[in-house]
Amino acid sequence: MTKFYHDDPAWADIEPIPQDDTGHPLVAIAYTAEYSEAMGYLRAVMARNEHSERVLALTEHVIGINPAHYTVWLYRARTLEHLSIPPSDELRWLNPIALSHLKNYQIWNHRQAIVDRRDSCEGEADFIAQMLDQDAKNYHVWSYRQWMVERFGLWRDVGEVAFAEEMIGRDVRNNSAWNHRFFVLFGGRKKGQAGEGEEEGKEEEEKEKEKELVQREIEYAKQAIRQAPQSQSAWDYLRAVLRHAHLPISTIAGFANEYNDVSPPRSLHALEAQLEIYAEQNKVDEARSTLEALAEFDPVRKPYWTYRQKELVVA
């Protein structure tokens, strides 16, 4: 498995550039001879700006030893472009590497560049799902999926919503999945996007559809809260949908109360919603005693609940 270049005739024309440290540096790593030599050849080809098939093989070699080496990934990306390697070939090479290095940063930026060049996201959703099967909250993978939604205009796409739903179904506390759902449904609409030049009727129709969607999402969040009333993800989603639709927090007064009718409450988040309902209705005394209850049942956040008293005085 070990690969050297000094005795490889295909590399005879290259004079490697060894690591040239001044004195004895901090955090000096005792590299293996193999890595040291491969890096020496990489520095040499970078210095002559060579982009060739053998460079591609060299980058693969170094990535195999140190996948966190951003320089090699960036140089590989440039080489692929120079050689006009079909994006699908590179993706085929990349997939197993991604699956065995779940926490790697570089792979996702690399993938993004390739898929962007390919100008198609075919197969990407499936691959992402495979990654998330192993690591359901992986930040890079979700971020990549959000990039895909934006790049390929998958706003309110049925498949994307269904995917978020499936992930939430598996673990109702998966906040990354809730974030994705919000992004897909409400992240893409910019003001005036749908409107211009369209007839009155169509605008009305749009408004009606929007109302239905908001209603559906409120119900969706509520049924998730019923499963795990103490999980913040669905509560925050619910609050965000209300805010998006300019609906007051009292819209969910009855629902919140379902979780507050005992002491301690079944959900702190319901109690917080209750606080805000009181504040909205200017019931300062009730709000104040709710804050006291919050500080009692959530003592780690006592300074925070105390701070929120000030908000009441101002209101």
């Binding site: 955090v27 890595y35 030893i65 140190n66 966190a68 080496h69």
Partner: peptide
């Protein structure tokens, strides 16, 4: 050498 992944 085990620290090679820290090289970058």
């Amino acid at each position: 050498a085990a620290y090679t992944t820290l090289d970058a």
